[in-house]
């Protein structure tokens, strides 16, 4: 099989949108690369980059992911040991934390120090889920944030979530937004990155993030 990027299919989320958005990003960059949605370990294992989407509850997603045979050792080998570029989206990002506190306490992948907790805005009138377009604040320079603008009159990303990742090491925070307190919008460490928002639903801003991911050489 030729070069491809694997989107892990574990029965969660709207994979088609993620696939279409990555295809558009690849096309914009003139990258001859296929985007494959798969739940087959041997396909995921041979991918040149891996994307983990996720919609739903933390534990359901974790269990769904680990119902794929050998996925733990494939990810450990390819992502942690060999340094393959990895992008988690929404709950796919949250799974990188050590623990999740949605409907009980659950173990995560533990790649980023921190845990996933309910959003508790200081302003009680703010609605939960945090749903819609919020302004992105960049917390550091990163390839994934190139060709984008932040701050006042900056760009927005589309969020929809009730839980958020609270990270222990500020160096892992790439971007954030404000919703009655700081919300983790993007995390990154070495070759792994994650977005709490949905790049596949964030129009131009989101497609640019995906283009940046495709040309990222960590």
């Amino acid at each position: 099989m030729s070069r491809y990027i694997a989107i892990i299919d574990y029965g969660s989320g709207n994979l088609r949108s993620a696939q279409k958005a990555l295809q558009l990003a690849a096309k914009n960059l003139d990258l001859p690369i296929e985007i494959i949605v798969s739940n087959r370990p041997e396909v995921i294992d041979k991918a040149e980059r891996i994307v983990l989407p996720g919609v739903g509850a933390f534990a359901d997603c974790y269990n769904g992911l680990f119902s794929i045979a050998d996925i733990g050792s494939i990810l450990e080998q390819r992502i942690i040991k060999q340094g393959l570029p990895f992008l988690g989206i929404c709950v796919g990002m949250q799974l990188m934390a050590e623990t999740g506190h949605e409907k009980g306490e659950h173990k995560g992948l533990g790649w980023i120090k921190g845990d996933v907790r309910e959003i508790k805005p200081s302003n009680k009138s703010l609605k939960i889920p945090h749903m819609g377009w919020n302004e992105i604040i960049f917390n550091q320079d990163h390839v994934l944030l190139e060709n984008l603008s932040d701050g006042l009159n900056g760009q927005h990303a589309y969020f929809v979530h009730s839980y958020q990742m609270q990270i222990k090491n500020q160096n892992d925070l790439l971007a954030s937004c404000d919703y009655g307190g700081e919300i983790t919008a993007m995390v990154g460490k070495d070759n792994i990155a994650g977005t709490q928002f949905h790049p596949e639903k964030s129009q131009k801003f989101g497609i640019t993030i995906l283009e940046n991911f495709l040309r990222w050489k960590p």
């Binding site: 749903m131 819609g132 377009w133 919020n134 937004c177 404000d178």
Partner: peptide, 8 residues
């Protein structure tokens, strides 16, 4: 700076 009102 916060969540924006949506038009649908």
């Amino acid at each position: 700076m916060s969540l924006k009102t949506r038009i649908i």
